[in-house]
Design a protein around this nucleic acid. Structure first.
Lengths: 216, 216
DNA sequence: TCCTTTTCTGACGATTTCGTCAGTTATGGA
DNA sequence: TCCATAACTGACGAAATCGTCAGAAAAGGA
């Protein structure tokens, strides 16, 4: 309950913390996770000593950086699918937007990819939302799957590997590939072929509508 | 063409190199990839100076360690599927054996998982074989997929995420989960439901038949 | 304005890690 | 057996990294 009006001091503190988190994200995206703390603070344009005002170890900073990226993307998905009621459509829309993310927000995308499979077990970001959507789809009879956790495994692994593919093959049409895979997943989850195709080609809300301060 | 009979000196050299690679694999499996070189050589029971006889940096050793793990597993799969002719069965068998691997060879499994998505683009190990099987399946008309590379993406991502799941949920029946997912993938690749089920439940060759010196 | 509190800062000693190298041990050949 | 060569070894100086701390700067309050 400590939410007294954020004072200017609070904002200053938050700014330097955010600068560190941003810097950490660029390093993670570049795969350089064993950098010296001094490098991080310099990239953040912050004094070396400031680091320990906010984090007690590099690991702690990196964890915070990943959480931040996951939470931002999760919040964006929530916002963009707010009006949808059909779980199949929510799932499809989230998956398709995430697929588009890899090119539009390469740094965020690479944070996810380089963080690897552990984000599939994270309490933050996309994983809990996908689980929720799959559960909802099963409850309402939209999805027919033997085991929701296995369905989640297929969706999560595919989403990550798709990101990898889109970075490896920069000439490939990302929207086309993402939508095709979305259709395949919907079929796997028991949606009839023609409907799976339709759902995975519906117009999408605009990612850019959000995230004015999104990381690249 | 330099394959003159390996002398005893060669064997000694190979032994210490192998010891380093094994040690590196245990560290990778534990997620401790920023260990000091001294720690690695001690774990390998090898003199500190020996390290630089074989590798010029930690990265180089870790790369070699991953390659080694991938090559071992790839060779095992080749051996175990040697007699099969149906691409769908080769694919299914490889996938199912890899699924069983996570519990039977936890260290190898964790090397793969912790290495992350980059193994999907590696020239070593499973990735090229899965690509080959999918291509063969398409050529012979067994598989019906829009894009082989997308099919590969689904299979690879799912395989990795499945490994993660099997480690996260140690009580889950690994064979059952793996076979179920194999069936889902076969259906995604256009195999009819009943046949997909049959193929993914066929008796498997025994993993233990091989790899007397396999890493745990 | 002046004092208190909070955060920021970079220099510094302590510690860790690196990579080399001179000496040792194992191997192969004469 | 004895020498030449290749591989192994650990100690050591050099370099990088860490975490602290005393003082500076900013913010808040009176």
């Amino acid at each position: 309950m400590t939410d007294a009006a954020p004072t200017r001091l609070d904002r200053r503190k938050a700014r330097t913390r955010a600068a560190l988190v941003r810097a950490a994200q660029t390093f993670i995206a570049e795969g350089r996770t064993n950098t010296a703390i001094l490098d991080l603070t310099q990239a953040a344009d912050v004094g070396m000593g400031s680091f320990y005002n906010h984090f007690s170890s590099k690991d702690e900073l990196f964890r915070a950086a990943v959480e931040d990226a996951l939470d931002r993307h999760g919040a964006a998905l929530d916002e963009l699918t707010r009006d949808m009621t059909d779980p199949a459509e929510v799932f499809a829309c989230s998956f398709r937007l995430t697929g588009r993310l890899h090119r539009r927000r390469p740094q965020l995308s690479k944070v996810l990819i380089n963080t690897g499979l552990s984000i599939a077990t994270s309490e933050h970001g996309i994983a809990p939302r996908v689980r929720r959507d799959i559960q909802a789809g099963i409850r309402t009879g939209r999805f027919t799957v033997a085991d929701p956790e296995l369905a989640f495994t297929i969706a999560a692994g595919t989403a990550l590997c798709l990101g990898q593919l889109l970075h490896t093959q920069p000439d490939r049409d990302d929207a086309q590939a993402t939508d095709q895979i979305t259709e395949d997943l919907l079929r796997t989850f028991g949606i009839p072929t023609d409907e799976a195709h339709r759902i995975s080609r519906r117009p999408l809300p605009d990612l850019d509508r959000l995230l004015p301060d999104a990381i690249a």
